[in-house]
């Protein structure tokens, strides 16, 4: 089983509460990456997040993009190259790439 299914239940709860939210999903990875395909990050309108799409190095950028996705109501496809230096930061032996799909919860 991939991903964190609980995040989707959280997403449903957030949506029912009437708050805006966006869901980010890892859709592909190259080389070493800390989180597998299907991993979720849930971001609400205050910028609060649950789950993860990396070891912590791209979450900030994803939250930033998620706010735009919520404002515009349109999904975005993000691509992150993990440089050797950043990869070292998150404990990886080599660089990699992570593609993340961010969609609004309607």
């Amino acid at each position: 089983m991939t991903g964190e299914p609980d995040i989707l239940n959280e997403a449903a709860r957030l949506r029912r509460s009437g708050r805006k939210a966006a869901l980010a999903t890892v859709i592909s990875t190259w080389g070493s990456s800390p989180r597998p395909v299907g991993s979720h990050l849930l971001v609400d309108e205050t910028g609060a997040m649950q789950g993860s799409v990396s070891g912590g190095c791209i979450e900030g950028a994803v939250v930033h993009e998620a706010m735009k996705v919520m404002a515009e109501g349109e999904p975005r496809l993000l691509s992150f190259g993990v440089t050797d230096e950043m990869a070292w930061e998150v404990g990886l032996a080599c660089g990699g790439r992570v593609d993340v799909y961010v969609e609004p919860l309607e």
Partner: peptide, 8 residues
């Protein structure tokens, strides 16, 4: 994601 899709 549409509410209906998420709920289903």
């Amino acid at each position: 994601m549409k509410a209906e899709t998420l709920e289903r």
